[in-house]
């Protein structure tokens, strides 16, 4: 009973935390992008203003749409993003549902927010949204391969090092990959990090992988018919999804905490770890979303596919091979 209550209130707390930090980091992202363009940019609370504005607006449901699917998709996108956050460690707090899922489950769950957007796009039955939904599906299929190579490489390395439960996120964060590999494997691990950094903007549909939304050609693509409350929920989902992707990068590659190095009283250690975790998240979002977004233009859909399948897939397999060679040498 106590466990159920813990999970219930924990979920509410994680949801509130994910939504608020997600919106704050969207604001920070917009400021940083503006500064890199020699602009001043909006205040950091801008996503909150946008959210409340959208909530106060009319919620249009197009006549040709399938209303229940159209209304369900934004809820599904937000809910599945929050569920993902439940499986990822936040600071030195272990993941709320750590005992119930592993890396494979996270890789699977990562499909759900994107799938919800596809469903919403098809349900709105606008030609723009339909094209956007098709492109989103193609993007999803393409980044699955590099993402899967990361999971496989990690589990293989941990299994080879004799760690019990190599797929569990808790054993991954307890044994950072950098400590398990020699020089050859180190190169492989760096390549894996690179692959995950490039997969992140694809997962978030940010430039250069925002082909499904493509404001200039598809007028917002998947989201073209969404307004008011439904659009606000997608906005929240984007914020939470950014946190999820960054938290995944942090958990896989930078799992260290302040309290591992400095002895602190328990409460202070938790706070310091959380602050350090937020800093790591911001650094990851900066390099994986903001910096890439500001330096590149949008890729065409066939370029997205060939980038993910051919080049990033090849880099992923190369990293896997390097890790295996490293295992054989050692």
């Amino acid at each position: 009973m106590g466990n159920v209550l813990l999970i219930l209130f924990g979920t509410l707390a994680v949801a509130a935390f994910g939504i608020i930090t997600g919106l704050v980091f969207l604001g920070v992202d917009r400021i940083l992008v503006a500064r890199m363009q020699a602009r001043i940019g909006p205040p950091w609370q801008q996503p909150f203003f946008d959210f409340f504005k959208l909530m106060s607006k009319e919620n249009v449901i197009p006549r040709n749409s399938i209303p229940w699917l159209f209304n369900l998709a934004p809820l599904l996108a937000l809910a599945s993003s929050i569920v993902l956050l439940l499986y990822l460690p936040i600071g030195s707090f272990p993941a709320l549902l750590a005992a119930h899922g592993d890396l494979i489950l996270i890789v699977y769950l990562l499909i759900v927010p994107a799938l919800a957007m596809v469903v919403g796009g098809f349900a709105s039955s606008s030609p723009y949204a339909t094209i956007g939904a098709q492109r989103e599906m193609v993007t999803m299929i393409s980044y699955e391969l590099p993402l899967a190579t990361i999971a496989v490489a990690y589990a293989w390395k941990l299994g080879q090092a004799g760690v019990a439960h190599p797929f569990a996120l808790s054993s991954i964060t307890a044994n950072p990959i950098w400590g398990l590999v020699g020089p050859v494997g180190l190169a492989g691990a760096v390549l894996l990090l690179l692959v995950l950094i490039v997969v992140t903007p694809g997962e978030l549909s940010r430039i250069p992988f925002d082909t499904p939304e493509a404001e200039t050609e598809l007028a917002g693509g998947l989201l073209v018919e969404y307004s008011g409350r439904n659009f606000a929920l997608f906005y929240l989902a984007l914020g939470v999804k950014s946190i999820v992707m960054a938290a995944l990068v942090v958990a896989l590659f930078f799992p260290w905490n302040v309290s591992d190095f400095i002895a602190l009283p328990t409460v202070a250690a938790r706070i310091a770890d959380l602050a350090f975790w937020l800093l790591k998240i911001e650094v990851v979002i900066f390099f994986a979303a903001s910096l890439i977004r500001i330096s590149l233009a949008r890729l065409r859909i066939n370029h997205v596919v060939s980038l993910y399948w051919k080049y990033l897939g090849a880099v992923g397999f190369l990293a896997l091979a390097l890790l295996m060679i490293d295992g054989m040498i050692a």
Binding site: A34, A38, I40, E225
Partner: peptide, 22 residues
């Protein structure tokens, strides 16, 4: 939208769909 005027300071931004617009 350029650095000289930068209306994003006031929360004004361009959107691609009339459904998103105020």
């Amino acid at each position: 939208l350029t650095p000289r005027y930068d209306v994003e300071r006031f929360g004004i931004k361009l959107v691609g769909s009339p459904r998103h617009a105020d």
